[in-house]
Each structure stands twice: as structure tokens, then as C-alpha cells.
Nucleic acid binder design. Structure first.
Lengths: 137, 137
DNA sequence: ATAAAAAATGCACTTCCGTTGCACTAATAT
DNA sequence: ATATTAGTGCAACGGAAGTGCATTTTTTAT
């Protein structure tokens, strides 16, 4: 039993062949991926399967969804021990206008914001747009 | 010549009947609106016109686009003197999970974030999700 | 005032992504 | 071995963004 299989099982997700491949694919990539990206990487597999795999991963806390402002949902593996739903674990994302890639900046947490009276915060999403380190170099 | 016409002209946008109506509609609403909302409000007008009106408004700095995580682009009028493109003018947006409405919190600016070396910030988008003041009361 | 040019609007159509229903297959439990 | 559940594949739908072109309206120049 591989590391990936163990990871999936620990999150109560059955480690099927397809799921292992997708997990591997995302682990190798350092950037957030869209459903389309996975589709292209696994042309033989059906879109629905990939779609539902991502949904399952998301529900089980294996990946988190990223909304980088392109109106295309991206996904990235959660760091070990990451609790995306907790406010203090919310990191920010960077979207490069040049290469169009989106990365997690897991070290940069979203600062706490004081909201006006009556507003209750439950989640936050901060995306910085600009030029990434690869493209600015 | 009305106030709205003056505003549009000052941004080098011709104050056509349609544009004035759309501007008025957005000024009356206190929340960010989607293209679909405007479509429903002006059933007689063509979607393309409304679409392009928003694009024009956006280009000319009359409205700013908001990405509230619903994957539906919203738009809101810029405050007088607002310079959306400037970092210090970036306010945050609040999306209510109950009423599904998105509002600008123009008083709450996005704090400056230190990025890792090589990353150049040009724009930022911060959306807080939760329960709005109307729904929590 | 009128003709020419430019801008705005409307119509039809396309594309892309997300999503769902249903049938089929594989895995697990009894 | 069979019943049950989970996963996968196929087909199709729906919403929203976007584009090309014809038509109308507005502006500009004569």
C-alpha cells in the first residue's frame, strides 16, 4: 500500500486506480489545476468521473477549491494538517496574468478583517493578481 | 443635462438612453448586480447591449467587476473618486450565503500583503463569505 | 440640411464549463 | 454466490460569456 493510498483511506476515500492517478497528477503539479487540465491529462477517462473525483476530494478535505477570478474553478491539494475551513488556515492565492497559472501561497495567511456590525464571516478568499516569480525573473 | 449624464460624459461614455437606465438601476441597487439581473430588469433590451454596456462601464472606470466566488460576474458602481486599479483603493466584498447578495464594503480596504520574492502584485480581490447584516439581524 | 462616418444596438449563434440522470461495471459485505 | 453499495461512463442539459454581422441611431463633416 502506497503513501497515496494511505492518504486517501485516512480521509475515508477509497483509493481507486483513477483517484490515485488524479492525486498523483495534482501532487506533481505545483499549481492549481482546473477540471479541463485533468481532462487533457487523462484523455481516456470520462469528464464526469474526473469532475466527481474532484468533488469527492473536496468534500473529504483532500483538495480545496480555488476561485482565482478567471471564473474557472481550480483545485489544489491541501497541505498536510490543513484545515481549509478554519479562518486561521486560510492562505491566499496568486494568479499570474502572464502565464495564467494560479498558485497557493500557503505561508501567507489572510489577515483578520474587522467587519461592520451585523456581518458574520465564515470564509474568505483572497486572490492577488500580478506577475509570478517565474514570469518576473 | 442630469447628474448621470454628466457622470457618464466625464468618463467619456456617451449617455445613451440605455446607458442612463442601466446606470440608474445600479445606483438604486445597493448590491452588486449580475448581467442576468439587469437582463431581468430590462427584458425588452438585448442581452448583448447590456453585456457591452457593462464592459464599457468597466473599461471607463464607471463600474468595477466583482468576483464573489459564485462564478457569476457581478458589477457595482465605483464610488466617486474611486480608483479601483490603485492598491490602496481596493475594498473588500461580502457575499451572503443566505440571501446570496454581494455588497461592497468600501470602508474596509484590503490590507497590504507581503509576497514572496519575485511576485509582483497588480490587483487584489478579497471576498468574505458569511451572513450579512440584513440576514443576521 | 444632408451625406458620410462612427458608434450603439439587436439578432443569431457559438463555446465553454459545470452539472445531472441513468445505465453499466466493479468492489464489498452478508 | 448473491445482494448491496460505490464508482465509472455516456449523453445530454443549462447558464453564462463571448463574437460576427446586419441594422439603427448618433455624431461629424461638408
Amino acid at each position: 500500500m502506497t503513501e497515496i493510498e494511505k492518504t486517501l483511506e485516512s480521509k475515508t476515500v477509497r483509493p481507486t486506480a483513477m483517484r490515485i492517478l488524479i492525486y498523483k497528477y495534482m501532487a506533481d503539479k505545483e499549481i492549481a489545476v482546473a477540471l479541463t487540465d485533468i481532462e487533457n491529462a487523462f484523455a481516456k477517462a470520462d469528464r464526469t468521473t474526473l469532475y466527481r473525483t474532484l468533488k469527492t476530494f473536496e468534500e473529504k478535505g483532500i483538495v480545496h477549491q480555488i476561485d482565482d477570478g478567471t471564473n474557472i474553478s481550480k483545485y489544489a491539494l491541501c497541505e498536510p494538517g490543513c484545515n481549509c475551513e478554519l479562518e486561521q488556515d486560510l492562505h491566499l492565492h496568486f494568479h499570474c496574468g502572464n502565464c495564467e497559472e494560479t498558485v497557493c501561497l500557503t505561508e501567507q495567511k489572510i489577515p483578520h478583517i474587522n467587519l461592520p456590525d451585523g456581518y458574520i464571516a465564515e470564509d474568505a478568499n483572497l486572490v492577488i493578481k500580478g506577475i509570478c516569480e517565474k514570469c518576473s525573473g
